[in-house]
Design a protein around this nucleic acid. Structure first.
Lengths: 237, 237
DNA sequence: ACCGTTGCGTTCATATTGGTCATGAAAGGT
DNA sequence: ACCTTTCATGACCAATATGAACGCAACGGT
């Protein structure tokens, strides 16, 4: 799959350069350009679109000298530019989140943010696109089902793998992830317990977390007597 | 908090009435009206908006006689109508999901769906609104943080578990439902057993549940020796 | 018409696992 | 050194698919 073309819209030069660098540093994305204000952003978007090389994602700062981010989004939609938008905003103006969602903002970044947070949001977006593409173009001629769409939307949601929930540790999580990646087939909690020497409760907790985060898929294993055993399979590239 | 005003846009009278009934049955929502095509939908939205009583959520069918759902959404945005949209579509046109997201579709429902699915999506939307309102208006003068926004987005996009009778599991039910939707012809319990690898008893239990819930029809299949076999067919619109 | 045959519907006990709680050990801060 | 916080564990109860056993309804040959 080719890279997702990104336009960075940000008036402050230092922040703009930082965002641009972030994009180039991230796999699966390529920088289409940068714009310091709303007018030039709209012009650039229109030019790329006319050249048959449209921008697919806009990192849009809400505070710009000439236009507010919401206005830019509105004008984009009015003129038939349907690039997805990740909004970047300062802490105070949270009351515009709802309007932003209605215009098609897919993610929301609050300044100041770290590279890790940035990478998480963009990666979620990429996973969303990939899941949609695979359930659509794939061999599944019968069409995708509600659960497929739900799962795609779920990967757009943040699996805060940066900030682990209480009770989980990084090293244990890495061990479980490594084991899952190594195994091609689906594994059960008991198998993880045996292989890694941890308790079943612990193994299950980490597997469950990974399932919620979207990194692994979870399905019951039928055929044997007893309560069905969940089996987990690594899905994330 | 007052109810969320909903407009139902759907050309088929039976489906329209069903969706309207669903809305009225659901806590926290009230029906603002119904529209059978795109033109009247846009007119109604404009009228409500002018009367200072705007619609906040639109249940928008994608297949309408005059305009495609995406066009309606686009015109809404162009004319300054920023109601949120839950898209309703048939299985085939999944390729428009991405465009839909860009115009601000917050949820996606695939026909045919059950009331439970419908209620889940709308409830998620309501939770999203409430979380946003509480973290904004609340005492938290320092403003909301990234995690607040993340949490709100999460409740919009996380499939919430709906209540099932004891003895049934969500994933198994999903598997059976997906299989039934994929098969156009009526299927027997034995066929479900073979295809999904579960036992005959289990398959039958889930099929019976779906039949009781009204999602599938049940009829005996004659012609072969032995006790007649029930066959199940997906019917829910 | 009758009756054996056939295969599914139905019920129940059983086998395992999922989930939760409180406990214990280790790590980190004061 | 003491207290607080964090994470893994063991033991418990609840949940859920399975298999076997029995009953039932239509078919088909006599």
């Amino acid at each position: 799959m080719s890279d997702i073309r990104v336009l960075v819209v940000e008036d402050e030069p230092i922040a703009s350069a930082a965002h641009a660098a972030y994009v180039q540093r991230l796999d699966g994305f390529s920088l289409a350009g940068t714009a310091p204000d709303g007018q030039s952003a709209l012009r650039l978007l229109a030019e790329f679109s006319a050249a048959g090389n449209p921008v697919e994602l806009v990192l849009l700062d809400m505070n710009l000298p000439d236009l507010h981010g919401l206005d830019i989004a509105r004008r984009m939609r009015s003129s038939g530019l349907f690039a997805d938008i990740i909004a970047i905003t300062a802490v105070r103006e949270l009351n515009i989140v709802r309007s932003a969602v209605a215009i098609g903002v897919v993610q929301y970044l609050i300044k100041p943010f770290t590279y890790a947070t940035f990478a998480e949001k963009l990666t979620n977006y990429r996973l969303f696109r990939e899941q949609l593409a695979s359930s659509d173009d794939g061999k599944n001629k019968t069409g995708a089902s509600q659960s497929d769409v739900d799962q795609a939307f779920a990967s757009l949601r943040t699996p805060s793998e940066l900030q682990l929930p209480k009770g989980l540790s990084v090293s244990t999580l890495d061990a479980v992830k490594d084991f899952l990646r190594k195994e091609d087939a689906a594994v059960s909690a008991s198998e993880v317990m045996d292989e890694l020497g941890m308790s079943r409760v612990t193994a299950r907790r980490y597997l469950e977390y990974l399932a919620d985060a979207g990194s692994v898929s979870r399905a019951p294993r039928y055929g044997a007597p007893g309560r069905p055993e969940n089996e987990y399979r690594w899905t994330r590239a």
